[in-house]
Design a protein around this nucleic acid. Structure first.
Lengths: 115, 115
DNA sequence: GTCAACTTTTGATGGGCGTCGTACTATGGC
DNA sequence: GCCATAGTACGACGCCCATCAAAAGTTGAC
């Protein structure tokens, strides 16, 4: 078929108006998930799940992506066998102004501190 | 003795420079603790532990105050038998600019939504 | 010194979350 | 059709955290 970008297959995305502080905090309290968000924020294109630099199993990775998606922090869509990820910056800024920027600005994670 | 404000008896306070994103997020992810911080932010004077409107036992309350203190979010000192609490706004702003404001601005907690 | 008010400490309990291994599904290329 | 690649679903395990009840410590008033 012609459809190569199947956005419709993932139904988990909350509307921008449904993004809640509690869920976002729960999502971003985990360092692995913050790492994902940071890498996403640093990239100027959408990123495939498999290319992230995370220190956990693929299985666990899937779990973290799901949490981020259900909190409304990332948007996911399929492109062939690959699952792509985008940061929902604008939606987050509307729902929780300043929060994402404050967290991204705060500290380059200690584990990544350059020498 | 003459000392009625014994700040020295509590040694847990991290220095402003030691306030870390991870600890602050871990502290503020709990709704009860965010409630404490909100009440503190809304008050123009220091507040005694006992006068907070929290929905848990005093024992649990003590625990939450301790977490907030060790994260560097509040400062505590004794005044007689009462334990007073202050929000460390300036220190937090220096360590994690914009974070506290973003969280306080975000939503009046659903549980507190006025009718 | 004794009593009452305020908060803490200790120990126990329960639930939730991060983690993983294995088995499964889906897509694309041959 | 078959195989390889990308990611998911399921189930299990361990640990950490919020919660509490009961007992103990501190301080101020009398």
């Amino acid at each position: 078929m012609a459809a190569r970008i199947a956005t419709e297959r993932i139904t988990d995305h909350p509307d921008a108006s449904e993004i809640a502080l509690q869920s976002v905090l729960e999502a971003l309290v985990d360092p692995v998930r913050r790492g994902i968000v940071r890498q996403l924020a640093a990239s100027d294109t959408d990123v495939r799940c498999g290319t992230f630099d995370i220190s956990v199993t693929r299985t666990t990775g899937t779990h973290h992506f799901k949490v981020l998606r259900q909190a409304g922090i990332i948007r996911q869509y399929y492109e062939g066998t690959a699952k792509m990820n985008t940061l929902r910056r604008a939606d987050l800024e509307r729902a929780l102004p300043g929060l994402l920027d404050a967290i991204l600005a705060a500290e380059v994670e200690p584990t990544l501190t350059p020498a």
